[in-house]
Design a protein around this nucleic acid. Structure first.
Lengths: 153, 153
DNA sequence: GCACTCCTGACCAAGAAGGTCAGGAAAGTC
DNA sequence: GACTTTCCTGACCTTCTTGGTCAGGAGTGC
């Protein structure tokens, strides 16, 4: 139940692209790497994956760089996480709806389904535009407004 | 953002222990392993971890076995997951409240905080007693009642 | 033709995941 | 006291993932 460096990097780079969308010019990988303090070569691999998933576009050469394939308010964090980490909330590498439990753990399936659903209510809701503007959906602000949410356990 | 085999096994074994709590006698590891189809020797390591975290107790020898250290309605799924997987929803192995973002990803911290909080609303709420009885908290049934929650993306 | 930038695959070290193996140490039974 | 049972513990193992680096190839623009 952790967020990988790759997913974190991917979202951060995408946020930079979202912010640069007004510029009408591609953003170089190097600039993204510096802005977010991400190892350049590693970032290039990540951007390539995002490109393969149709989230980002790119052009080579001088004046080349990366840009979002769609408007920033049409790209969700969930999409980006899935692109680099694969499906969200799989259990033992299988989707929760496909697991069959025996004995007294029968209802565990519903719990994992609920876990996935609750992740989705957050990740599917937040777009890159939200992230850049800071105007996050109420589901996020509600959850993050509790003092309790900010303390470790 | 996945659930490991270990966490899944741990919760399932704990559910069996919860169901056996009425029996007033320890449950052998072998019986747990069979009931939930878990490799016995691997399960023993997991149960040991649960013991070290004060969730389970054990006695050796004939008539020995495992039992819950507390009533089943006082043990949450969150506790068990943490015992075997470590902290929930860490980003790059650091807790979300400790990360410092630069540039246009500043608000990503709130998103990860919300992700963790949303996981907690599910995992902290479900107890082993709920799991065994099938009477899950409304937060779970609400989330899992949507058709959408059961389809992959 | 040349500089620039992305594209791609190979590689790599460390750690985690998912186990297995072998033996030791309590607890109960005869 | 011997013996059986069951947990306890650490060592080990294989495979995969994570988080990168390296080297070169291929478009693009001037």
């Amino acid at each position: 139940m952790r967020v990988s460096a790759k997913a974190d990097y991917a979202v951060r780079a995408a946020a930079e692209l979202a912010a640069a969308q007004a510029e009408e010019a591609p953003v170089k990988g190097e600039r993204l790497a510096e802005a977010q303090d991400i190892p350049l070569q590693f970032l290039e691999h990540i951007l390539l994956e995002l490109k393969h998933h149709g989230i980002v576009r790119a052009r080579r050469g001088a004046k080349g760089g990366y840009w979002l394939a769609r408007p920033a308010d049409e790209v969700t964090v969930a999409e980006i996480v899935r692109a680099v980490e694969g499906p969200i909330a799989h259990v033992q590498s299988t989707p929760p709806e496909a697991i069959e439990y025996r004995g007294h753990s029968e209802h565990l399936q519903e719990v994992w389904i609920a876990v996935r659903a609750s992740l989705r209510t957050v990740l599917e809701e937040v777009t890159l535009a939200d992230l850049v503007s800071g105007e996050l959906p109420s589901v996020v602000t509600d959850l993050a407004s509790s003092k309790d949410a900010w303390v470790a356990r």
